[in-house]
Computed example of a mutant assay.
Amino acid sequence: MTARGWFLFSLMGVVWGIPYLMIKVAVDAVSPSTVVFTRCALGAALLLPFALRQGGLTRTARAHWRPLLAFACIEIIAPWWTLTDAERHLSSSTAGLLIAGVPIVGVALARFFGDTERLGVRRVTGLALGLAGVGVLTVPHLTGGDARSLAEVLVTVVGYATAPLIAARHLKDVPSLQLTALCLTLAALVYAPAAALTRPAAVPSAEVLAALAGLGVVCTAVAFVAFLELIREAGPTRATVITYVNPAVAVAAGALFLDEPLTAGILAAFALILAGSVLATAAAPGRRPRREPDAPDPDGGDRAEAARTPAP
């Protein structure tokens, strides 16, 4: 991978590792609906003009409105609210580590929806390790009134793992920029009434406003653009490896900026989930991986691969 590729990879590792920190800061002062609306509205405002310049946005929306609606609901509208609401009670590091289980759930869902590839001992071991890591992380919270928060994160994980299946089967012909802009716009419209009803009585602090701006501008709009460039530079398979880097950033950010505890349990859970994700998503033994093109087009056939890495 080139120096530019490594720069983009490092950038994405941070950009999609810090949303959990920003969500935690913002949701302590404003409602989850306001957080999601602000994030989606800012992202849509920045990306929609570029999507319009591509042309054919209205035609795309009309031709693919059913899968677009399903993708928006499962990838953004439901998961972003449940994740944000869960962080009212869970630490940002815990949320980030639980989201790391997305690749594991993705493997299980792919099997359920007809993936005929043999799992093998390696991938089964990975699933078991990942589930053990989730157990280590969640059991201490079950007695503290956080069962609902854990269930909300589970909804988020299932959504992030399911949405790529929709993109791969029904949205392969939709340019990634148009797909993202349309979904963010729809999500912003959905949450606008709730955000208006639950708006804070006073202007939030500068810290909260900065967190909201960071979520919308950096972690949504800029992140999607940078990720598309990373796919161009390194290919879709290497690009999705950031899924394994983001949780480490989430844990470190929570410990550094929010004084969240970095316990032995968290470290053990991180090791188990990371190892499980790597093993569960590895190619089956004896199966030759598909050769990556030198310069994949993020607006072409590789956009389904791009969708496999969730935006937190």
Rank of each mutant, 00 (worst) to 15 (best):
A271D: 00
G43W: 02
F71S: 04
C219F: 03
P193Q: 00
W65E: 11
R232W: 02
T309K: 11
I266T: 07
F270K: 05
V153I: 02
H89N: 15
L11R: 02
T138I: 09
L69M: 10
L109M: 02
A307S: 09
G235T: 07
I266L: 14
A29E: 14
V208A: 11
A168G: 14
L154C: 14
G13Q: 02
R122H: 08
D85Y: 10
L267D: 09
S205V: 06
W81P: 00
V15E: 02
F113A: 10
R53M: 11
P103I: 00
C73A: 14
A201S: 13
A72F: 03
A3V: 15
L215F: 05
S31D: 14
A211E: 03
A255K: 06
A211C: 03
R39T: 01
P293I: 15
D294S: 15
V155D: 09
G254A: 02
E229Y: 11
F227A: 08
V249T: 00
A128I: 15
R66D: 09
R148I: 07
A264V: 15
N246Y: 00
L142H: 10
I231N: 13
A192Y: 01
R62E: 09
A202H: 13
L262N: 14
R123Q: 07
T263R: 09
V241I: 11
G56M: 08
A295D: 14
A29Y: 05
L21Y: 05
P310Y: 08
F270L: 04
E260W: 12
V174Q: 06
A44S: 01
A268H: 04
A86S: 08
R66K: 13
V218G: 07
A61P: 01
A271C: 04
L48D: 08
G300N: 13
S31A: 09
L46I: 13
A110C: 04
A253Y: 02
P32L: 14
E207N: 12
G55P: 07
A210G: 08
E117W: 10
I74N: 04
L197I: 07
A295T: 15
S10D: 02
L150Y: 02
F37R: 01
A283W: 14
C183I: 14
I18H: 05
V139H: 12
W16T: 04
V158A: 15
C40I: 06
F37A: 00
P103Q: 08
F227K: 11
P67Y: 00
S31M: 04
L165V: 06
L83R: 04
F9E: 05
P261K: 01
T138P: 09
V36C: 04
L184V: 09
V153E: 00
V190E: 10
V134R: 04
G13L: 03
R88E: 05
D302K: 13
R4T: 13
K172W: 15
L11A: 11
G126S: 08
E229G: 10
G101D: 02
